[in-house]
Simulated scan of single mutants.
Amino acid sequence: MQYNSTYNIHNASLGLQTEIERLKVQALMGWDKEFRNLKWYGLENGMSVVELGSGPGFLTQQLVNSLPDSLITALEIEKTLLDKAQNMLNHIPEDRLRFVQSSIYETRLPDESFDFAIVRLLFLHLHNPMQAAQEIFRVLKPGGKLVIIDIDDGIFGAVNPDVQALPTVLKKIADHQATKGGNRYIGRSLPRLLTNAGYTDVDIDAVIQHSDIHGIEGFKLQFDINRFVGFFNNGLINQEEFDQLKSASEKISNSPDAYAMMTFVMAHGKKPEI
């Protein structure tokens, strides 16, 4: 199955199991705030909801628990992740949760079948985000809504102690991902993307995660130095930059004075009513 994405769990620098744990922490850490905003954008219990790029199912589980009268469709292209989600959520009846192995570019889902679509941390990896936005538009009912939760490394966040090299490293990684077809600055592009794909009522907001509020454990995995070893080994980042990142990783893991903050973008669009 063709991925057309810069993300492949099997190439994760942390290894499969640690990467899955990182994805779990990443999904759960800001869920309360994200769900608050999803409801503000119109998500309601009882709606037909599709989650695209559902991964190992951690966000799917939150949706099932938070929307007890909704049918959740979890779409994921990677079989390893889909199997993980199905095994974890095999107690959920089929009238509440169904899994689909398919691409966001060609979901094979019926026209106009969902009230609400959620895509979290996938658009930054997509080679053709417009095609994905248009495919979601197709499967939404008239009046249906899409919310994309993603990043923009230009407003990444902050860490303490400060890492002077971090902006440079982030730009190098973003430029590298761009050569492979991704976009780590996708957040700023989402309003225009949604408008050009035909959505109306386009809006954008941000959700901030802070270690003093959400706990430091999740940030330890985000700043795990092993995530940067590959970039150092292939010469993308230099010794001084790597040493700064390693020092920051150690302090985030061990120093009571350390903290971190990360910013996530939430963009909304509505399929026009007939």
Results as ranks from 00 to 15, higher is better:
143 G>C: 03
145 K>T: 06
146 L>R: 00
148 I>K: 04
149 I>Y: 06
151 I>Y: 00
151 I>D: 03
151 I>Q: 07
151 I>V: 11
152 D>R: 03
152 D>W: 01
155 I>C: 02
155 I>Q: 03
157 G>R: 12
157 G>M: 01
158 A>I: 00
161 P>E: 01
161 P>R: 00
163 V>L: 12
163 V>A: 12
166 L>Q: 09
167 P>Q: 04
167 P>T: 09
168 T>K: 14
169 V>N: 05
170 L>G: 12
171 K>D: 06
172 K>M: 01
172 K>A: 12
173 I>C: 00
174 A>T: 09
175 D>R: 03
176 H>E: 13
177 Q>D: 13
177 Q>S: 05
177 Q>Y: 05
178 A>E: 12
179 T>Q: 13
180 K>L: 15
180 K>D: 03
181 G>Y: 04
181 G>W: 08
181 G>N: 01
182 G>E: 11
182 G>H: 03
183 N>S: 00
184 R>G: 06
185 Y>T: 09
185 Y>Q: 00
186 I>S: 00
187 G>S: 10
187 G>K: 00
187 G>W: 06
188 R>V: 01
190 L>M: 10
190 L>W: 01
190 L>R: 10
191 P>W: 12
191 P>F: 02
193 L>N: 02
193 L>W: 04
194 L>S: 00
195 T>S: 13
196 N>W: 11
197 A>W: 10
197 A>Y: 02
198 G>S: 09
200 T>W: 08
201 D>G: 09
201 D>K: 14
201 D>Q: 14
201 D>M: 07
202 V>H: 04
203 D>L: 02
203 D>M: 07
204 I>G: 01
204 I>E: 06
205 D>L: 02
208 I>E: 03
209 Q>R: 14
210 H>S: 01
210 H>K: 00
211 S>R: 11
212 D>N: 14
212 D>K: 14
213 I>W: 10
213 I>R: 13
214 H>K: 07
214 H>N: 15
216 I>F: 02
216 I>D: 11
217 E>M: 06
217 E>A: 10
217 E>I: 02
219 F>L: 11
220 K>I: 14
220 K>P: 02
220 K>S: 09
223 F>Q: 10
223 F>G: 08
224 D>S: 11
225 I>L: 14
226 N>Y: 02
226 N>E: 14
229 V>K: 15
229 V>H: 12
229 V>G: 00
230 G>P: 10
230 G>C: 10
232 F>A: 12
234 N>F: 06
235 G>I: 00
236 L>Y: 01
237 I>A: 08
238 N>E: 05
240 E>W: 05
241 E>L: 06
241 E>H: 01
241 E>I: 03
242 F>H: 02
243 D>T: 15
244 Q>F: 01
248 A>S: 14
248 A>C: 14
248 A>Y: 04
249 S>Y: 12
250 E>C: 06
